[in-house]
Design a protein around this nucleic acid. Structure first.
Lengths: 349, 349
DNA sequence: TTTTTGCACTCTCATATCGAGAGTGCTAAA
DNA sequence: TTTAGCACTCTCGATATGAGAGTGCAAAAA
């Protein structure tokens, strides 16, 4: 190692070789040997030389061999180097962009938009995809409406940011007349329309306080209803997924046990959600490779995420989940553009 | 065969033996041999005798052996006989009923109710479950409301049967004032509330016809909007599923290829939907065993379904999907009761 | 006539053996 | 510094082998 290493290990040549090896491995998933590399590389070197270089790369922790007499595969650290410094991202296929754009009809309702986006993303990448629903916090109320369903059940309709419609049903202690509901509707719209839900909740608390001395029955009633209508619950953090089954094709996960664990964690959502949260504050594409994610089930997987934003505010995250040996150069730009397009689809109107 | 068969094949004893064999096989999935059966049966017979009987049952097409020297397994025909005539259904576990009841809070919105039901069903049976959304046809409109979202986009809120809320967004050629919307809302509620959606659509067509000569602008406008609001689209037939991953534990499906095909067909929904439709007109629990379903992917699977109804009208179907060797005696009553409970949950209010 | 015993036969499954092939690391030569 | 040569290691597929389970059939027993 010593002297030799210092002059040799990080040469352009060895990096080039490393890159070729990773690309090879990504393509067909088989450990790559010196012969293969010697043959398919414009460098005119004998397998023996390449073996030397590969040994050096292994010392650096970038490669490892599954067993003595197999070729080499990239380690997590190797992938990291690859995606951070070596990767040249593909130009995007026009057709694919069009394809995504087509699904993103901004006329549809938000949940639907997310589902369409997710399934487009998974079909194009041929991997599993995930899209978190946009955070409702910080979004502004456009309109609220009460509608009587039966004796003491009232339907509340919240229109948020022009696009998203939420229905909630609240139970009331007494029966309200249509006129009363109408009054409450008018009052609350006048008072709260245009404000963010956060603000509204705060103001409701203040009003409740002030109310103690107030005698206006109408207002009192309206605020009480508002309290129920806007109460906690909220769109709890959630996401939609698509294309699970794409993962069943990848050889690394061909073990049913492993797959089941993975799918189960998708259903439970907790771990995945936590992971996505980490990337919500990063700007641009972020990549978790294998164990880096910190979740055992994702051992053999990489996750490529990007937050999507509206008016410069991050509203959520989307991404794809696939084997560590996914085609990063293809997937990364797709995730990137999809996030941007989703942001602007949410933005229009 | 001849004479011997006639007197021997369908004796009580052979049926008892057959039943024991099926139960054994359902329990541990291994072909059942004569020794095992001789040991575990109160009949005091030697393995040889049992072999004779099994040979007869095989001639009848009720059993088959995977290979010369394995025990016997039930054929499709065998399962059919078993579930139709031999099965003694388990008494229901109180806890399980309570469990289902707990999930079925009739306060929640319909989609939610279906999802809860489905996941309860899959967790209790430890199989995959499916619940179709209730058909909207034949249900009656309680209330309709228009709300302006932006220049020429209007949110339509339909409350159907007190429980289900539908949001739709329609695009209009020109801008409508809030007053106009209010008028339309009032007009349509007066005219249509309480009628079934089918009827409403019919009446809209009639009105459009009559309209040609009519000069009342208000009405004309309202009807035009109604046309868009109630147009086709509809809740297209759809279902929710839960517990896919339970199927990954069953040995018969341990092949990833097969599983993928199965899951894909769940996602495409077409085949499954078609299958469920067949059972929507049956009353009570229905069972499709293996190939009987007519779909190749369901080769190794059985489906136990039951329609659920409100006021004697069938609204949808629910069921579970599992291996042919599922515990029918446990699953059947669960599916049955769940369907009934779902019906009454939909009914309340 | 029905049941059982005895036995030869078949098939699977787990295990061991073997050789080919791929790939390595090291040493010595170019 | 690179290459050639070579011994070595490990996997993988093919083949053999034997134990175990279970069968079917014929003849004896009930």
């Amino acid at each position: 190692m010593s002297r030799k290493s210092d002059t040799n290990l990080l040469t352009e040549r060895s990096l080039f070789l490393f890159k070729s090896l990773v690309e090879h491995f990504i393509q067909d998933g088989l450990p790559v040997g010196s012969r293969t590399l010697a043959r398919d590389t414009r460098l005119d070197l004998s397998p023996a030389t390449i073996r030397n270089i590969m040994a050096d790369l292994e010392d650096l922790g970038l490669l490892s061999s599954p067993h003595t007499s197999a070729g080499r595969v990239p380690t997590i650290k190797g992938y990291r180097l690859f995606v951070d410094s070596l990767l040249r991202v593909n130009a995007l296929d026009e057709g694919e962009i069009k394809r995504i754009a087509r699904e993103m009809d901004p006329e549809q309702d938000v949940k639907n938009l997310m589902e369409k986006t997710s399934s487009a993303l998974s079909e194009i990448t041929r991997l599993a995809s995930v899209v978190t629903l946009p955070r409702i916090e910080g979004r502004s109320l456009q309109h609220v409406e009460f509608m009587s369903l039966s004796e003491n059940r009232i339907l509340v309709i919240l229109v948020v940011n022009n696009k998203e419609i939420q229905n909630r049903i609240i139970n009331t202690a007494r029966v309200y007349s249509p006129a009363e509901l109408q009054q409450a509707t008018n009052f609350l719209n006048e008072k709260f329309a245009g404000k963010s839900l956060d603000t509204i909740r705060e103001e409701i608390v203040e009003e409740l306080e002030r109310m103690k001395n107030n005698v206006n029955r109408q207002m009192q009633m309206a605020i009480e209803m508002a309290q129920k209508a806007f109460a906690g619950g909220e769109h709890r953090e959630d996401y939609v997924m698509a294309g699970h089954t794409n993962l069943m094709d990848v050889a690394e996960l061909s073990d049913v046990e492993k797959l089941k664990k993975l799918f189960d964690s998708f259903n439970q959502k907790r771990d995945i959600l936590h992971l996505l949260e980490q990337s919500i504050h990063a700007r641009g594409v972020q990549i978790f490779i294998g164990e880096e994610s910190g979740y055992e089930v994702l051992d053999q997987c990489s996750i490529v995420t990007s937050p999507y934003e509206v008016d410069g505010k991050i509203m959520g995250v989307l991404g794809v989940i696939g084997p560590t040996r996914m085609e990063y150069q293809r997937v990364i730009p797709i995730v990137d553009i999809t996030a941007k397009m989703l942001g602007s689809a949410l933005n229009s109107h």
